[in-house]
Design a protein around this nucleic acid. Structure first.
Length: 668
RNA sequence: GCCGCCUUAGCUCAGCCGGCAGAGCGACGCACUCGUAAUGCGUAGGUCUGGGGUUCGAUUCCCCAAGGCGGCUCCA
């Protein structure tokens, strides 16, 4: 028997081994169920493949990112086998691992029902119990064709791979090198199922410790609306039952933070059917929250040198023809209102009407303000700010709570400056944005730079490069991580967006900063330069909140409705032990109110326990309780949101504590 | 926009195979006056989302629309 030498690299140490030439990863690590694959000379491989001479072999554990992907990808195969065993006609799409799980697409006669999902889960459990081996097998294109003749979507992927123009999706599924098929082999050596796949996979299905099917939905083949719609089955898989349970708990926690649910519970806003989809109304508490946020934003914008403007909600079509929106985006605008048309008695036109549109953006109007008189270089940078209400006819299927609406208020500004000023302006702007978001309690950011899509963009290469460089430079100064989004820019401008992670680690796109390479030309904007010549200004679009509505939605989820005192609509609620203490608490409330605190006293005839429960459910930062003992001592008793108590606090000290938390924008 | 599911009182939800609509919470009233997560009793709330159809009869079955939910696509 011939031998070979390999290096095992595990846990930072490496170790030479002489083994026989038929050695597999399973031979090395097969007694450890947490090792699901090996990395051989940097490449992920199945445990049951023989190792090459001289290889450096690293074990891949099931809880590593690669290990989890392998687990989930293998679980997707199990799901597909289960589906085809129950639904013979099902044709396979693709089935990759995704964040926290996997999906698999199928062309089936009828969409899956909840009952189907339960049955598929049952069948999957059976397959897992059978401990079917995942057996890799290289095949020629012809062989793959023959074996998968009944799988039209797989054939399409094979064809794509054969043609040089393999797209990213196809190569992810079938691999860049040779084609491989994975057989699922039962212990009696019969083949249960097979799939065209690049792998790698678990050694056998028994390596799947915990899984669940989570939901199903429709998805277009290859994400293209013009293709067939397939049924997508979503699932999740974890290294242990406990981790699956923890994942389910996380989902439940996230659901508790849902801003649509909390918005109703906290009486902040609602979405009346009578008004229309995606159009929110803000109730008194939500309106107050909005005002607090807007007031603070306004104050900061004043300090940062912005000028405040106001513009109407509607405009004649002419404006959006100049800006180009009607040409490019009329699908996303509400249809026009046709007004002023008059006709003679015979129906012939007497007076031609006008089309008015709800504005989808504020920038065209801001450009008109810029253009309303001659502008000097001395005025630059000119920063025009507005809480501008815009309306976009979003597709009915995408409208979602406050985060995707049809009517919203942008904290929108347009900065006009010279090319030379652009760099400094972007740097200070990004800092301004980050500072302000931090004040609202978002502190964990990264940046995304969306660059030009050469296919769909206007403007010169030089302009794009200069603008993109300026954005990249501003990002570098911020010191934050920068993720590239190649080709993700709008056709007229590169963009930096600030992504914020919330309290439970989800990321939200918050602010955007765009350098516009189109509107200054379209509106023929000019400044008079020091030498008397006319120059085109640079225009920067930016929104910090994105929209006030969306930002409120994000903050509700971030804080789970428990706002820091400075943002809380009701900061303090007074609860008397009995009605006879109402007057005392009302007088304490008066003093708090005089100190600028938003305070209410619950004088209803509920019992105090009930009032405490109500106040807790309203997530009021401070509950102040007072009875005979407190009144006698000129004191109040605190109950905080975490149920901590602090009894007998003198009124002065209570006011100090509350007002200082508010002033510091501290969370409590 | 596409696919699937859903819509019963202000909210959360029961309601079997088609036969006169139910609970809890909330609201309102009365009693209770109480020291840290629901006091008791009572009252009022419904064209069962809207429209059409089938049927002796529709909250229930069918069709259409609106709104919602989960995805897909989209997000200037």
């Amino acid at each position: 028997m011939s031998t070979m030498s390999i290096t095992i690299a595990a846990g930072g140490a490496s170790q030479q081994r002489v083994t026989d030439t038929a050695t597999t990863g399973l031979d090395l690590f097969g007694d450890d169920r947490t090792i699901v694959a090996v990395r051989v000379n940097g490449e992920l491989r199945d445990l049951n493949r023989t190792l090459p001479e001289g290889a450096t072999v690293e074990p891949v554990t099931i809880d590593s990112p690669d290990g989890l992907d392998i687990l989930r990808h293998s679980t997707a195969h199990v799901a597909a086998q289960a589906v085809q065993s129950l639904h013979e006609e099902a044709k396979l799409g693709i089935g990759p691992p995704i964040k926290d799980g996997f999906y698999y697409d199928f062309d089936v006669a009828a969409p899956f029902t909840p009952d189907d999902l339960r049955e598929i889960e049952k069948a999957m459990t059976k397959i897992i119990k059978e401990r079917q081996r995942f057996q890799r097998r290289a095949v020629s294109d012809e062989e793959a064709h023959a074996e998968l003749a009944a799988e039209p979507y797989k054939l399409e992927l094979i064809a794509d791979k054969s043609s040089a123009a393999a797209d990213e999706e196809a190569s992810a599924e079938v691999g860049a090198g040779e084609l491989t098929i994975y057989d699922n082999v039962r212990r009696d050596s019969s083949i249960a199922w097979k799939d065209l796949c690049r792998g790698p996979h678990l050694p056998h299905t028994g390596y799947i410790p915990a899984f669940a099917l989570t939901r199903n939905s429709a998805a277009y083949w290859r994400g293209d609306q013009n293709n067939n719609q397939l049924q997508r089955l979503y699932g999740t898989a974890w290294p242990s039952r406990e981790e699956l349970k923890a994942y389910e708990t996380r989902l439940a926690e996230a659901a508790k933070r849902d801003h649509r649910k909390l918005g109703a519970e906290l009486d902040l806003y609602s979405f009346p059917d009578e008004i229309g989809s995606g159009l929110a109304v803000f109730h008194p508490k939500g309106g107050l929250l909005r005002k607090i946020m807007e007031d603070y934003s306004r104050q900061r914008h004043i300090e940062a040198g912005y000028d405040f403007v106001n513009t109407p909600h509607i405009s004649k079509a002419e404006l959006f023809n100049i800006s180009g929106h009607l040409g490019f985006y009329s699908d996303l605008m509400y249809p026009p209102m046709h007004v002023d048309e008059e006709r003679h008695a015979d129906g012939s036109l007497k007076r031609q009407g006008q089309d008015y549109y709800l504005k989808p953006m504020n920038c065209p109007m801001h450009c008109l303000i810029f253009r309303s008189r001659g502008r000097s270089y001395r005025e630059l940078p000119l920063r025009l700010f507005e809480f501008g209400s815009v309306y976009r006819y979003e597709l009915s299927g995408v409208v979602h709570g406050l985060t995707r609406v049809r009517g919203m208020t942008q904290d929108d500004a347009h900065i006009y400056c010279t090319v030379d000023q652009m760099q400094d302006e972007l740097i200070s702007l990004l800092q301004f944005v980050l500072d302000l978001l931090t004040d609202y309690g978002l502190t964990d950011f990264y940046l995304e730079l969306s660059t030009r899509d050469a296919e769909k963009s206007i403007g010169s290469d030089e302009d794009w490069e200069r603008a993109t460089d300026a954005l990249r430079q501003a990002a570098a100064v911020s010191g934050l991580d920068l993720v590239l989004d190649p080709g993700g820019a709008a056709f007229y401008a590169p963009k930096i967006s600030v992504q914020a992670r919330d309290a439970i680690g989800r990321t939200w796109q918050m602010s955007t900063i765009q350098v516009d390479l189109m509107l200054p030309d379209r509106f023929d904007l000019e400044i008079t330069a020091p030498d008397g010549s006319r120059q085109r200004p640079v225009m920067i679009h930016r929104a910090l909140f994105g929209s006030v509505e969306r930002f409120i939605g994000v903050l509700v989820e971030h804080y789970a409705g428990a706002f820091p005192p400075w943002l809380a609509p009701v900061q303090v609620i007074g609860i008397p032990v009995a009605a006879e203490h109402n007057a005392y608490l009302l007088s304490v409330a008066d003093r708090l109110r005089a100190a600028g605190v938003r305070v209410e006293v619950d004088t209803s005839d509920d019992r105090m326990q009930k009032k405490i429960r109500n106040a807790e459910r309203a997530k009021v930062p401070y509950i102040l309780i007072a009875g005979g003992e407190d009144a006698a001592a000129n004191a109040v008793s605190f109950r905080y949101r975490d149920r901590r108590q602090n009894n007998g606090v003198p009124i002065e000290a209570a006011i100090d504590e509350i007002t200082s938390d508010i002033a510091a924008r501290r969370q409590v």
